[in-house]
Amino acid sequence: MLYSEKVLDHFSNPRNVGEIEDADGIGEIGNAKCGDIMKMYLKIDDNTITDVKFKTFGCGAAVATSSMATELIKGKSINDALKLTNEAVVEALDGLPAVKIHCSVLAEQAVRAALSDYYTRQGIDPVPIVGEIKEPEEE
């Protein structure tokens, strides 16, 4: 498995690991059976993601993509966070092995799941804004 230096860096020194006690939105995606679970915590103030933390059970790529995704949305507006794509995560990590691309999709979906939870807590239907959250498919 050939990982880029960036992936290994984010795996060995993951950014923003942990939990936010009073999070405004929490999203969890994946299942342990398939070997990947990502949990994303958001603190949102005035439409800005002021803090983000994650916990991940999974392979090196799962940890690295979660870490990178948190970096890419921290301090950004919700609108910017909603534009985060798995491709952007992959690019920021200088690429991923083909069999690990699904990890970047999980990272993107974890962010969306957390935003979806945020809207739900606000009493707003998240689907028109965030869209449906895609659980990973069993191949």
Partner: peptide
């Protein structure tokens, strides 16, 4: 329990230990 094998192998590798796992990854 609670962790995934490939991550474990990468961490061990960073500590100079070569091992293997039966994880899906």
């Amino acid at each position: 329990e609670g962790i995934e094998g490939e991550s474990l192998l990468l961490m061990l590798d960073m500590n100079g230990i070569c091992a293997s796992s039966g994880s899906a990854c």
